[in-house]
Design a protein around this nucleic acid. Structure first.
Lengths: 131, 131
DNA sequence: ATCAATTGCGTTATGCTATAACGTGTGCCA
DNA sequence: TGGCACACGTTATAGCATAACGCAATTGAT
């Protein structure tokens, strides 16, 4: 998955996420980009769809928010499964990869003849600074 | 976590989920229970909150839906972490527990001094019957 | 060169998911 | 018997996401 040039909208959305402290909702991104001409949710969602597909943005299913990939230069998809810790106090998100967990889930799916699409692993709680 | 008697609303919601083929959204449950007098989303959400707390219903974060626990008699919470496969074609959900994955996630959290609250593991894809 | 396919864009409208805030009723037990 | 805890019902609103339309730019095969 090579990284094509981003369109203006995609670039603006990625920038907003990259400069944010934590994850942002689509509507928060919209508000941040009103000065740049954004007017409608779809402008954000369409950019997000593409950025997620490229692997430079992750969607956090459990909080309906999006976060820039922690290491966008390497191809995040190539690391396989991505897991997250999400601090419910400060919003800090940490991304990590664990090959054993990945293997274990793959084995379960294989045993059941389940064809794996996208996998979500999210741990919500309190980070070290907030506990 | 003992299982107290359920209220009428809680019982109706749990029944709806138990008899369903797959996961249901809160609003789908609401529609199913209109004949029983349900009129507003909160009636469903309040029941769901309680049922989830009791461990007899699980929330699937990645599809904003709810499913009855596969083994409600045992205390599902006592099995620790619950993971799911979710078929995107037929909606079938399979619940499973893997001690090694649980251990691995716990170790990661421990290393980072992250205090774990609720953990979500959901694999979306195609089940054996739909692949 | 030109046509068709693809992709992104902008807009309006709408639908789905979830909670806030208020008041009522009931059971418990100090 | 007064206070508390809990569930309930209702109205209203907030928050998240997509449908459907048409236009513009790009690409690429003929």
């Amino acid at each position: 998955m090579a990284m094509p040039n981003l369109t203006r909208n995609q670039h603006l959305v990625l920038d907003a996420l990259s400069h944010a402290e934590g994850p942002l909702s689509a509507y928060t991104i919209l508000d941040k980009l009103r000065d740049q001409g954004f007017r409608a949710p779809l402008q954000v969602y369409r950019a997000l769809d593409k950025l997620v597909e490229l692997g430079v943005v992750h969607r956090l299913e459990s909080i309906n928010a999006f976060v820039a990939c922690a290491h966008p230069d390497e191809d995040c998809h190539s690391h396989g499964l991505t897991a997250f810790t999400i601090c419910e106090s400060c919003g800090k998100v940490t991304e990590f990869h664990d090959h054993m967990i990945e293997e274990r889930l793959a084995a379960f799916a294989r045993d059941r003849n389940f064809k794996t699409g996208k996998t979500t692993i999210e741990i919500r709680g309190q980070c070290s600074g907030c506990a």
